[in-house]
Structures are given as structure tokens and as C-alpha cells.
Computed example of a mutant assay.
Amino acid sequence: MRISIDKETCIGAGQCALTAPGVFTQDDDGFSELLPGREDGGGGPMAREAARACPVQAISLSDD
């Protein structure tokens, strides 16, 4: 699974980091970012839930 975050859309709500703290974090400005090594997978069901929880749908997932 490939995980990507649209930085232009993200508003820094933090729902992704709360839902899947092993996949997402927030940068110094409060915007979402992936933990190192998570761009190409490893998110599993929690990453899917985090994408659903994003209030502006800034997270996209695609199966490779």
C-alpha cells in the first residue's frame, strides 16, 4: 500500500496521528507527515482508518 499526503489540502487537524500513531506524525508546523519508511506500505488497517478520519481527505492510499 502506498500512502501519500496532499500537503496543500492538509489543515493539521491531527486525526491521522491520533488514529495511526505508528504511521503518521505532525511536523513542527502541525501538519501531517509520514513516519520514516512508511511511504511504501506498512500502514495496514490503521492507515485506512486514518485516511477515513481526515476531515479534508488529504490522505490517499493506493494498493501496489
Rank of each mutant, 00 (worst) to 15 (best):
M1E: 12
R2E: 12
R2S: 04
R2K: 13
I3R: 06
S4C: 00
S4Y: 00
S4A: 13
S4H: 10
I5V: 15
D6K: 01
D6L: 01
D6P: 05
D6Q: 04
D6C: 01
K7N: 08
E8R: 12
E8Q: 14
T9K: 14
T9Q: 10
T9W: 00
C10A: 11
C10Q: 06
C10W: 04
I11V: 15
I11S: 03
G12A: 10
G12M: 07
A13M: 09
A13P: 03
A13D: 14
G14Y: 06
Q15V: 00
Q15K: 14
C16A: 09
C16K: 09
C16S: 11
L18C: 10
L18S: 14
T19D: 02
T19E: 11
T19C: 10
T19I: 09
A20P: 03
A20C: 10
A20E: 07
A20Q: 09
P21N: 13
P21W: 11
P21C: 13
P21I: 12
G22P: 10
G22M: 08
G22W: 09
V23S: 06
V23N: 02
F24D: 07
F24M: 07
F24H: 05
F24Y: 13
T25H: 12
T25R: 15
T25C: 11
T25Q: 15
Q26T: 15
D28E: 15
D29A: 15
D29N: 13
D29I: 01
G30R: 07
F31K: 13
F31G: 12
F31L: 15
S32N: 09
E33P: 06
E33A: 13
E33D: 12
E33I: 11
E33C: 14
L34R: 03
L34N: 02
L34G: 01
L35C: 06
P36W: 04
G37H: 08
G37I: 01
G37A: 07
G37T: 09
R38V: 05
R38D: 03
E39M: 09
E39L: 12
E39C: 01
D40L: 13
D40P: 00
G41Q: 09
G42I: 08
G42T: 03
G43E: 05
G43V: 08
G43R: 05
G43W: 00
G44V: 11
P45L: 11
M46A: 15
M46T: 15
A47C: 01
R48Y: 09
E49M: 12
A50L: 05
A51M: 06
A51N: 00
A51P: 04
R52I: 05
R52W: 01
R52L: 10
C54A: 06
C54M: 05
C54P: 05
P55M: 04
V56H: 02
Q57C: 01
Q57F: 02
Q57V: 00
A58P: 04
I59G: 03
I59F: 01
S60F: 02
S60Y: 00
S60Q: 13
L61T: 05
L61I: 13
L61C: 02
L61K: 02
S62I: 08
S62V: 13
D63G: 02
D63T: 12
D63N: 09
D64F: 00
D64I: 01
